[in-house]
């Protein structure tokens, strides 16, 4: 039991949940993209509270660009990205809320009825963590790492092939 950690977990956890909720409750598209960014930053701070320093800082950094790019795609696709009109963008609200509640509740039940094998092992210092992660990346998980590279390549090719207009290229 670490009181300080519990306080920070609850604080940033509730921040993450609040902003996640705002994502779907606001009419303005840019606001919802940046609320998602705020929620993700809160998740990154939770990583920092749990002393996964590299992952936390990396997550905070990656999400900034990812969510802002999401915002520009919103701008491109929506008639009214500022939410100034009164357009409803949701459907089947009742079923989805019931289904979301069921999935969340079953998830929570699974958490509460499991006996978690907590260890007493000390967490390595952040500098040691970076080193260990590098060793893991280069030795045991080397194939996973290269596979991730291949999947990034596939995604790049897929995105280029679908998104870019070829009219100008083919002439």
């Amino acid at each position: 039991m670490n009181m300080e950690r519990i306080i920070f977990l609850l604080l940033f956890g509730s921040t993450a949940i609040w902003f996640a909720w705002r994502v779907f409750m606001t009419k303005s598209m840019i606001r919802s993209a940046l609320s998602l960014l705020a929620s993700m930053v809160a998740i990154g701070i939770l990583f920092l509270v749990m002393q996964a320093e590299f992952l936390g800082v990396l997550h905070i950094m990656m999400m900034a660009t990812e969510m802002t790019i999401m915002a520009i795609f919103m701008m491109m696709f929506m008639m009214d990205p500022g939410g100034m009109g009164d357009m409803d963008m949701s459907h089947q609200k009742k079923y989805s809320s019931v289904f979301a509640f069921l999935s969340g509740a079953s998830y929570a039940a699974a958490i509460l009825f499991t006996q978690w094998p907590i260890t007493a092992d000390a967490v390595p210092a952040p500098a040691q963590q970076n080193h260990d992660l590098g060793i893991e990346l280069m030795q045991r998980s080397m194939m996973i790492f290269e596979t991730a590279g291949v999947s990034i390549l596939v995604a790049m090719i897929a995105a280029t092939a679908t998104a870019l207009s070829f009219n100008s290229v083919n002439k």
């Binding site: 320093e53 800082v57 900034a64 952040p126 970076n130």
Partner: peptide, 14 residues
Amino acid sequence: LSTGALFINAAFAY
């Protein structure tokens, strides 16, 4: 911070 080089990047992204 032992991930300082990454942290300045993260700060500048904001």
